[in-house]
Design a protein around this nucleic acid. Structure first.
Length: 274
DNA sequence: GGTGCGATCGCCT
DNA sequence: GGCGATCGCACCG
């Protein structure tokens, strides 16, 4: 009934299982004529890159809107790494005790959380890792990027991940390259110096919509409690983590949340039938 | 597949 | 001085 059609996501450049030609990110060439007198990096008329207005949403809305979008990282040698966002968390600031900006607390570290929506907040954790967030509407609110599905540049990502692991460790599968907040920073070479940059205008990292896909339907999004915030009382249990149901790149599954969601949708369909 | 534990250091109290 | 929006690896089933 609810069997999910999940194709092998490991290598999107190969032919798809149903024999259709591979679906690539193809930039529409309908307005190519406009491009030569605009910025060499991007333009307001870029059909794919998401601009400032996208980030002007409430924290929860932005966390959900990120799902299915494509994060692009352009390395200094020109290589573009692409990966689809499949898991996010909302950190609301203010009342949200699990947020770095809880109680409106503003420090040198979390300044980016208070900057305009779309500002990147990169911070170090456990002394050895980084996490990447993007500020949203709301005082001190930001969205944590938790996992991505690699779309292109997987071998470069693998090299970047391997550089931080023991020599001789087993080769990472594609789905293991970006399935965690610090893993994705390593795989995309997101650095501390990206803190406070603008995801809407930066030339080394940006967000694109997938021209092949509409927005993700609400029925595909699981809402669950956040990860690693157990010590923050009631805020630890609030459903502020969002991920694409059934996606192999999600870092931590919440079967209870998925079950509840399924029984809810069954109830809904019974209502419409009866 | 799941769980438990140590690593490691910047940030804030 | 204590802790953390994590990760990798050893170990178990």
């Amino acid at each position: 009934m609810t069997t999910r059609k999940r194709k092998n996501l490991s290598l999107p450049q190969s032919e798809s299982a149903d024999g259709e030609p591979p679906k690539r990110l193809i930039q529409s060439d309908t307005n190519t004529a406009d491009h030569h007198h605009l910025s060499p990096y991007f333009s307001m008329k870029d059909p794919v890159r998401l601009s400032d207005s996208f980030f002007h949403q409430s924290c929860v809305d932005l966390a959900k809107a990120f799902l299915g979008k494509v994060l692009v990282r352009k390395l200094t040698d020109g290589t573009e790494l692409r990966a689809r966002v499949v898991e996010t968390e909302a950190y609301l600031g203010g009342e949200d005790k699990a947020s770095h900006s809880a109680g409106g607390k503003r420090t040198e570290r979390n300044t980016a959380m208070f900057m305009k929506p779309g500002t990147i907040y990169v911070y170090p954790i456990y002394g050895i890792y980084l996490c990447m967030n993007v500020s949203s509407q709301g005082e001190g609110a930001a969205v944590l990027l938790r996992s991505l599905e690699p779309l292109s540049g997987q071998d470069v990502m693998r090299g970047l991940r391997a550089a931080k692991r023991k020599a001789g460790a087993k080769t990472l599968k594609d789905k293991e390259l970006c399935n965690g907040p610090s893993k994705l920073c390593q795989a995309l070479d997101v650095q501390r110096c990206f803190d406070r940059r603008d995801l809407a205008t930066d030339t080394e990292v940006w967000l694109e919509k997938d021209p092949e896909r509409e927005n993700v339907p609400a029925g595909e999004v699981v809402s669950a409690h956040r990860i690693g915030v157990e010590s923050h009382g009631e805020w630890a249990t609030k459903p502020l983590r969002f991920y694409l149901r059934g996606h192999p790149c999600v870092s931590v599954l919440n079967r209870d949340a998925e079950r509840q969601m399924h029984s809810q949708s069954s109830t809904d369909s019974q209502k419409t039938v009866s």
